[in-house]
Amino acid sequence: MPHEWKEALDQIHADEALKQRTRQFVQQNMARQRRPPAMRVVRRTLYAACACLAVCLLAAGYYLYFTPTSIISVDINPSLELSVNRFDRVIDVTGYNEDGEQLAGTLDLLYQDFTQAVTQLLDSETVQTCLARDEFLSIAVVEIDPQQGQTILQYVSSCTAQHRNAYCYSLAPEEAEHAHETGLSYGKYKAYQEILAYTDAYTPEQINAMTMRQIRELLYSLQTGQEPSAVTPSAGGGYGHGGEHGNGNGYGRHNAE
């Protein structure tokens, strides 16, 4: 091997600075390599915990918001129900007959505070027209949360105080649990239950097709033995229902004069 070649290569050295930088580089990377498994596990666990927490919060939020704690069943001829959550917001509006569905479609009740929703509903042209025709307005409050149910009942009672044919009452959830199976709103279901006590000649479909006034007349005729056509549809007081106002919940109000 030529001496010059060896001499030339001998001149190539790794200087001390390069070695020192390399030592530092290697040590830093070794430290990082040693640390990561534990750090990675901690980080992954943290991410997983955060993800679980986020999912749980979302699920809990969804549950809290979209679980009804009270239901307001409004029956006049349109029958519709407003589901109210624990934050007093209307989370569902369901029409229980054709008129009810049409009315629900014309109003913007969803996610409103129940006070605004009830006011809007009662002030609607459809309800006002029915009341002007001397129709009977039934508002049943299903108290899943009794405290909120009472608040709602007080509110709807005050709202309907000036209507002589309005009848507000509360229902316990167990009283209304089979209502939807029959296709009736809670208010009509309650009346249907009362009719059933006298006769089973009427189907839920027939009851659903009636206005609340017709249902009350029918009930009154069954209670008094008079023909329905002979019943004088004078406001409320004559329907034989006065004793039941409140339906055992200790609250109720009949606006009959």
């Binding site: 190539i12 790794a14 070695k19 030592r23 290697v26 040590q27």
Partner: peptide, 13 residues
Amino acid sequence: VNRAIEQYADTVK
């Protein structure tokens, strides 16, 4: 590692 750097640095370079 430090021994290897000291011993083989020139060769690697």
